[in-house]
Simulated scan of single mutants.
Amino acid sequence: MPDREPATAPRFRDRPVSFVRRSGRMSDAQERAWAELAPRYLLEVERDVAATSVRPGAVIDPAEVYGRSAPLIVEVGSGQGHAIVHAARSCPEIDFLGVEVFRAGLARTMLDAGRAGVRNLRLVEANAPEVLEHLLPEASASELWIFFPDPWHKTKHTKRRLVAPAFPPVAARALRDGGVLRLATDWDDYARQMRAVMADAADFAPAFDGDGAPRFDGRVMTAFERKGLRAGREICDLAYRRRARA
């Protein structure tokens, strides 16, 4: 087996990412939010080759970032920030980290968080698996949320789906023992894939009976969920508990 490259060596990603990054124009309010609020909310990240990559070894100390030791909940694909800003405002005793690659969404999140006076929220502009694998310390997260990830419903694109066989190990690394991975999707075939992938994940056990979990009451209704419901699609919640490390 060939030697692995040293952490400092440039490298390209060895699997497709779950997004296509577009340079959408930000509104004037979003531009102002980025300029004024990024120092408060946005984590600086040491990059690898790609603009949204994370350099191996660039780990953060959550206690230093948040100024305290508290449970940490991570939302992957935080979008416009509706869910995570609501959660952070409702649960000031918990720290939250939103992971997103679209700058306009991050700016909107900062704008709403600033207006709400939220202090227990940080954001990172990066590819989620690299955040879980390189940026977060092992066993640092209490929960990991992935709500309505891009379904990549065309057959030729399903290889881009986030919840695929390579994902559970990086999620397990970041979660503490007993931590919970929460998933939600409005695409039936993606729900089936999620269940199949997680059934093969040795580090996780289902935290529900049957084909799905009850709707997570900590998830606010977002535009993605409303769109799915209007289209007649059924929302599927899933939850998996991180098994104890050996």
Rank of each mutant, 00 (worst) to 15 (best):
F19T: 01
V20R: 15
V20T: 15
V20C: 11
G24W: 08
G24L: 10
D28F: 00
D28W: 03
A29M: 01
E31K: 15
R32M: 01
A33C: 09
A33V: 03
A35D: 08
L37W: 12
A38S: 15
A38P: 09
L42R: 10
L43R: 06
L43E: 05
E46Y: 08
D48H: 07
D48V: 03
A50D: 14
A51H: 08
A51V: 07
T52E: 10
T52N: 12
T52F: 02
T52Q: 09
V54F: 00
A58W: 09
E64A: 15
Y66A: 00
R68G: 10
R68P: 11
L72Y: 00
V74A: 08
E75I: 07
E75R: 03
E75P: 01
E75L: 06
V76I: 15
G77I: 10
S78L: 01
S78W: 05
G79Y: 02
I84Q: 09
V85F: 09
A87I: 03
A88H: 13
P92G: 13
E93G: 14
I94R: 15
I94K: 14
D95T: 12
D95V: 09
G98D: 06
G98P: 13
V101E: 03
R108K: 12
T109Y: 04
M110Y: 10
D112P: 07
A113Q: 06
A116Y: 07
R119V: 13
N120W: 13
N120L: 12
L121T: 09
L121V: 11
L121W: 10
V124N: 04
A128E: 03
A128G: 00
P129T: 05
P129M: 01
E130P: 01
L132W: 00
E133W: 04
L135W: 03
L135A: 06
P137C: 02
A139V: 08
A141R: 05
